[in-house]
């Protein structure tokens, strides 16, 4: 028996693989060819995103996992970004809560209440626009038409905003060392080159702490938003019935007033119908 050369061993292994997994290899080759020809980002398509900085051209979506064109674009300070997220969510949530709190402002004739703050938030989300026609000035996805923002869209819009926020946190995490060097982890931002020096021991501790903080924030933000939406759920679920009740109540008040007048009129029935008393005034 002669020792096989490395190349012949490889060929032998390939031949063996081909024999055993012929079907699998054919499928993989076909998939690769399709991916190469159509430039589909398979992973992005499967996961709903296209990777950092990419834009899907196949699904008609402008959703990306980058901060491009989002409210977080260009921001490096974690505290500022976290406050911005909470502030935007608070505006949309409070708008809804206050709407529920004041049935006296509900309109019975309008089909759907307008939610201007929710709409304003949706307008800032690249993913809530859809590519149709040519892009606007500067290629901004925000120049594309806005998807409908309905009263029921609240959870979806907030969910999309949360996704953008999580993507931003992941991006911050990837730049944790840079954040420490520019003082953004301790809310003392400075321009590169003009920052106080950071020694290696500090760097090791601060990067770890910063990344832990981002990790906790990512989990906490999702938990908080999901629980908020859960808390609103019973109001959302009962809103239509509540509006019917309120509108019925208003109609009932009108009806009660009408019946009130009718009762006044009816109290005169004996005199109207009975000439004995009205004409003759018999005692």
């Amino acid at each position: 028996m002669t020792a096989a050369s490395p190349s012949s061993g490889l060929l032998s292994a390939l031949r063996d693989t081909w024999r055993r997994h012929r079907l699998l290899i054919v499928v993989m080759v076909i998939l690769s060819v399709v991916a190469a020809l159509t430039q589909v980002n398979l992973r992005g398509s499967l996961l709903g995103g296209t990777g950092t900085g990419g834009t899907s051209s196949s699904e008609g979506s402008l959703r990306t996992c980058s901060d491009a064109w989002t409210v977080f674009e260009g921001k490096e300070n974690a505290t500022e970004i976290m406050n911005l997220f909470r502030s935007e969510v608070t505006k949309a949530v409070e708008e809804r809560v206050q709407y529920f709190e004041k049935p006296s402002n509900w309109k019975c004739m309008d089909k759907e209440p307008s939610m201007p703050k929710l709409r304003a938030l949706a307008a800032k989300l690249p993913g809530w626009h859809y590519p149709q026609g040519g892009p606007g000035a500067g290629g901004s996805p925000l120049a594309f038409p806005l998807r409908p923002v309905l009263f029921e869209s609240s959870a979806s819009v907030l969910g999309e905003f949360l996704r953008e926020y999580e993507c931003k946190i992941v991006a911050l995490d990837a730049r944790a060392t840079y954040a420490v060097l520019t003082g953004n982890d301790i809310d003392a931002p400075c321009l590169p080159g003009a920052c106080p020096p950071v020694n290696s021991a500090d760097l090791a501790v601060r990067v770890g702490a910063y990344r832990e903080r981002l990790k906790q924030e990512r989990s906490r933000a999702r938990l908080a938003l999901e629980r908020t939406l859960h808390l609103l759920r019973s109001f959302d679920a009962n809103y239509q019935a509540a509006r019917d009740i309120v509108c019925l109540q208003r109609a009932s008040l009108d009806l009660r007033s009408e019946l009130n007048l009718l009762a006044d009129t009816t109290s005169c029935m004996p005199k109207i119908w009975d000439a004995l008393t009205s004409i003759h005034d018999r005692k």
Binding site: T90, V93, T228
Partner: peptide, 12 residues
Amino acid sequence: SSLFELVYKEAK
């Protein structure tokens, strides 16, 4: 406090 801020605080 606003509802979301309450929940966010609680999520801690």
